[in-house]
């Protein structure tokens, strides 16, 4: 059978099609992650941890060793794994609730301690698995089931800027960036850097990936692209907020 160049080798065939909703941006991001793992030839030494919420749908997405937990605890789980086995490449994959709300202390302290793991966070501006509640990343005015009139910044504050915040805390040698799932090239480049930084033994690596959630946004394909690429990037600029010289 001919090789399918559009299917990462590190993806598990038996668990496809993947479990995400149609139009979700996460599968694009994770396909890129799969391709990067293939290119770096690290599948046999990579451990991938996924969190609660939509991210748990990836517990058997890869043909690599994986673990699933909740509430942003993917970060300490991978920090502990890396400490015990420094030769492993550890990936902590989570959503904006796990990383920026219920488990925010883990990301902040991992950045401060310069824990040599790669954390990947999906920002889709809502809590998706539970049905579209307000997240720390929900835009001002954006409706959510727990913000029926839209996010009122005077009552609940403005959206969190995760990479910008972590870049303030992180040590030299950290790689911290924001990308978007629909810009395949940019997304792949940044995932690659976030993993290369760990392979090089430099330090903490973090990328936030802006992603689409048509089901909870109640948007069609074009509106989803518009909201993520135009509205979200206005609030969440793409870029590298900390990049070691050797990766630049």
């Amino acid at each position: 059978m001919a090789e399918n160049n559009n299917f990462p080798k590190s993806w598990k065939k038996s668990s496809k099609p993947h479990k995400f909703c149609p139009g979700c941006g996460q599968s694009l991001a994770l396909k890129n992650l799969g391709f990067v793992i293939d290119e770096l030839q690290i599948a046999d030494k990579t451990v991938y941890a996924c969190d609660i919420g939509c991210s748990l749908l990836t517990w058997d997405m890869f043909e690599i060793d994986t673990i699933q937990t909740h509430h942003g605890r993917v970060v300490p789980t991978m920090v502990g794994f890396k400490l015990a086995k420094p030769s492993a490449i550890t990936i902590a994959f989570m959503g904006d609730g796990g990383g920026y709300a219920i488990g925010a202390q883990h990301l902040i302290n991992a950045a401060m301690r310069d824990d040599p793991i790669t954390a990947i966070l999906i920002n889709n501006a809502n809590y998706a698995m539970t049905g579209g509640q307000m997240a720390p990343t929900t835009l001002v005015g954006q409706k959510a089931t727990t913000a029926p009139n839209g996010r009122d910044w005077q009552k609940v504050g403005k959206p969190i800027h995760g990479p910008e915040m972590l870049a303030e805390i992180a040590q030299e040698g950290s790689y911290i960036a924001r990308t978007i799932s629909t810009d395949i090239a940019d997304c792949k480049t940044k995932i690659r850097k976030a993993l290369q930084n760990q392979i090089d033994g430099r330090g903490f690596s973090f990328i936030e990936i802006i992603s689409m959630c048509p089901v909870n946004w109640h948007t069609d394909a074009l509106q989803s692209l518009d909201f993520s690429e135009k509205e979200m990037t206005k609030v969440y600029p793409l870029g590298e907020f900390k990049c070691p010289q050797k990766l630049a």
Binding site: R73, V75, H106
Partner: peptide, 17 residues
């Protein structure tokens, strides 16, 4: 660690390794 949740989960990380 930063708290006892992190202590518990990083312990699990060590055990998994």
């Amino acid at each position: 660690t930063e708290d006892e949740m992190s202590a518990g989960f990083s312990m699990i990380g060590g055990v998994l390794a």
